[in-house]
C-alpha cells in the first residue's frame, strides 16, 4: 500500500464505531430508560476527536475529524449537516489554537475537550429547538449550558486521563508520519 494513511483512516472509522458502541452499551446497561438519566455520559467521539486533533500533524486534523463525523452521522439521529458543522468547528478550533500554542499537554487538551463537548451538546439542543420552531417552548442559553455541563465534565476528565492512549490506538500510527519531501 503506497499510502498507509488510508488504512489509518479506515482503522479510525472502526475505532470510532467501537467507541460509539461502547457508549451505547453503557447507556443501555447502566442507564436503561430515558435520555434524561444519562446526562453524565461522556461524549466519547468528541473525546477521541480532541485527543487525536491535538497530536496528529496539522494537515491531518481535518481528514481525521471528517472521518469521525461520517461515522457519527451513521449512528446519530441529529441532522448530518449539524454533525458536519460541529466536527468542522472542532477542527477549526484545534487548528487555530495549534498555530499559536501547544495544545497537546494535559491542561490545554482537557480544556479543549470541555469546550468541544459542551459546545456539541449546546449545538445539539439549538438545532433541535430551531428545527422544531413553533412547537418547542424554547430554552435560554444559560439553561442549555448548565444542562451540558455534566457530560462535558466527564468528557474532559476522560481526555485528561486517557488522551495520550486514545491518540495512539492501534492502526493509527501512519497518521503521525510526516510526508516525504
Amino acid at each position: 500500500m503506497k499510502n498507509p494513511r488510508w488504512i489509518s483512516w479506515g482503522m479510525l472509522a472502526v475505532w470510532s464505531t467501537l467507541i460509539l458502541t461502547l457508549q451505547l452499551v453503557l447507556v443501555y446497561r447502566v442507564y436503561p430508560g430515558s435520555a434524561a438519566k444519562y446526562i453524565w455520559m461522556p461524549d466519547l467521539t468528541i473525546a477521541l476527536a480532541v485527543a487525536l486533533a491535538v497530536r496528529v500533524p496539522r494537515s491531518e486534523v481535518l481528514p481525521v475529524v471528517l472521518v469521525m463525523a461520517i461515522v457519527r452521522i451513521a449512528f446519530s439521529t441529529d441532522p448530518p449537516v449539524a454533525i458536519l458543522a460541529a466536527f468542522l468547528a472542532v477542527s477549526l478550533l484545534v487548528g487555530g489554537l495549534r498555530s499559536g500554542i501547544d495544545v497537546a499537554g494535559v491542561v490545554p487538551r482537557t480544556l479543549l475537550a470541555f469546550v468541544c463537548a459542551a459546545g456539541m451538546s449546546v449545538w445539539g439542543h439549538v438545532v433541535l429547538h430551531a428545527r422544531n420552531r413553533g412547537f418547542s417552548s424554547g430554552s435560554d442559553f444559560s439553561q442549555l449550558l448548565s444542562d451540558s455541563m455534566p457530560a462535558a465534565l466527564m468528557t474532559c476528565i476522560l481526555v485528561a486521563m486517557f488522551g495520550a492512549f486514545l491518540a495512539h490506538l492501534p492502526g493509527l500510527s501512519p497518521l503521525y508520519k510526516r510526508p516525504k519531501i
Binding site: 460509539l20 446526562i39 439521529t77 441529529d78 451538546s121
Partner: peptide, 14 residues
C-alpha cells in the same frame, strides 16, 4: 437499529 449515539437532548432510533 438501537445503535444510535446517546445524547441527553434527544432519544430516537434509526
Amino acid at each position: 437499529s438501537r445503535m444510535v449515539d446517546a445524547a441527553p437532548w434527544r432519544e430516537g432510533s434509526k
